[in-house]
Amino acid sequence: MTALLEVAGVSKRFRGLKAVSEVSFAVPQGGIVALIGPNGAGKTTTFNLIAGVFPPDEGRVMLQGRSITGLRPNQVCAAGIGRTFQIVKPFGDLSVEENVLVGALARERSVETARRQARAVLERLGLADQAARPARSLTLPDRKRLEVARALATRPTLLLLDEVLAGLRPTEVDRMAEVLRELNRREGLTILMIEHVMRAVMALSDHVVVLDHGEKIAEGTPAGIVADPRVIESYLGAEGI
């Protein structure tokens, strides 16, 4: 498999504090890669470096062999990366459909065509019957789905998911996991996910990257990772699985 996304030795310091330190990993085309680690390990910072929220101090980010290092978030979106936010950021006063419409307008100039695309995405994520409601009135699980819907509507080749399963009930986790698996299998969507819900990580991902204190401490198959002593010590602990 060829790498769709290649993160090569990226580092980021905040006022002297190394949030991410020389992290490298690759996301193969069509894969589902999970990024795990304890709180403060630098997972979201790594995401933000990929998504263009801030440029890395060192290192490069390559998408399909082209450097996207230092691009603005809207340019990263145009390059083909869609993202969700850990703390959901819906356009509160807009309707659910309009939220997704904004995402669709990233690649579509006609509002009517974009609206049709938005409806299709809402249908797919089971939000169609909420389309006309203001986004701020949604429950947390629905807001998380809306995050995914809006990112999907930008028609990404790579989807970055920042803890979209956290805070959901087990049935909702299964439902979301099913949607993601289907997108991956049917449409070849590549996914890089930050996740704490180990059950979902084990079930969904085919490759796991573990961060701790801003450094990559391990990577491998889900089964290999949960057996890795370093990972158990720093993150999973005895009761983690």
Binding site: A51, V53, R72, P73, N74, C77, A78, G82, R83, F85, K89, P90, F91, G92, D93, L94, E98, L101, V102, G103, L105, A106, R107, V111, R150, A151, A153, T154
Partner: peptide
């Protein structure tokens, strides 16, 4: 629609290609 998105959540608007 892009204006409204920027008004509501600039970061999310930018991530959505605005």
């Amino acid at each position: 629609y892009q204006w409204l998105a920027v008004r509501e959540e600039p970061d999310a608007a930018e991530a959505s290609g605005v």
